[in-house]
């Protein structure tokens, strides 16, 4: 057993070289790797903590929103109820207004229909009255209504002679309008009567269906009528009185 000092020196040198080699190829890579991994883990944990904080903040915000919604639900329902009532009142008011408007329109329509009905009734009544009058005159006196009116007008012309002359002035043209054409005898009688009152006058006879039954005599600027319009107006007054009496409540 002995110590070889050269070997000792060589082994010291070998050991120092080995220290350097292991430091270069073992310790430093391993420790650096561990440090890097620890740093990465720390960073990831920090990131996880940050994300967790964000998530917790979001959860707290969400919880606050839920609580706020729960707290405001009653208020929202009350507001919705009031809005619904206001909407209902508005719809009812609109319906009432529409109903009143329709009632007013119907009332106007009823008035108009009554007016039309009355006018129609008046027209039909006048036609019936004239027809009955014509038939009565024909059956009882063998005369037409127009001939009878012309006869009556001819009798009255003498009393109106001064007025007629004044109305005729210088004009010698007269127009006789009737509902139906006059008979030749009636024409001659009327022409003769007018010729006696105003010598040289020429009478033109015309018939118009729109003309009320009777005689309209136009002379210069004057016009003299012997028609049944006044009687028909009397018939209208009679019908109105009958309606008024029928509509009156029975006591």
């Amino acid at each position: 057993m002995s110590i070889d000092w050269i070997t000792v020196a060589a082994q010291i040198l070998n050991f120092l070289v080995l220290v350097w080699l292991l430091k270069r190829f073992l310790y430093r890579p391993i420790l650096d790797g561990i440090d890097a991994r620890e740093k990465e883990i720390a960073e990831r944990m920090g990131e996880a903590a940050r994300i967790r904080a964000v998530a917790e903040a979001a959860e707290a915000d969400y919880q606050a929103q839920v609580a706020s919604l729960r707290a405001g639900r009653e208020g929202t329902l009350e507001a919705a109820r009031k809005a619904a009532e206001a909407e209902r009142d508005a719809l009812l008011a609109e319906a009432r207004e529409r109903l009143a408007r329709e009632q007013a329109e119907r009332a106007v329509q009823r008035v108009e229909e009554a007016r039309r009905y009355r006018a129609e009734l008046q027209r039909d009544g006048a036609a019936a009255l004239l027809s009955l009058t014509r038939k009565a005159l024909k059956d009882l006196a063998d005369e037409t209504l127009e001939a009878r009116i012309v006869a009556h007008a001819s009798d009255r012309l003498a009393a109106m002679a001064d007025d007629l002359r004044k109305a005729a002035g210088d004009s010698l043209q007269a127009i006789a309008l009737t509902h139906e054409p006059l008979s030749q005898a009636a024409r001659e009688r009327l022409g003769n009567e007018l010729a006696q009152l105003i010598p040289g006058i020429t009478v033109t006879f015309r018939s118009e269906p729109a003309q009320a039954p009777g005689l309209v005599l136009r002379l210069g600027g004057a016009q003299v009528e012997w028609t049944v319009d006044s009687y028909i107006d009397g018939l209208d007054a009679l019908l109105a009185a009958a309606d008024h009496q029928r509509a009156r409540p029975r006591g």
Partner: peptide, 19 residues
């Protein structure tokens, strides 16, 4: 022994990356 230790260390740590 030195070659064994160094060689093994180099072999195992040559492609060492933190990721």
């Amino acid at each position: 022994v030195m070659a064994l230790l160094t060689g093994t260390s180099m072999l195992l740590t040559r492609s060492l990356r933190p990721d």
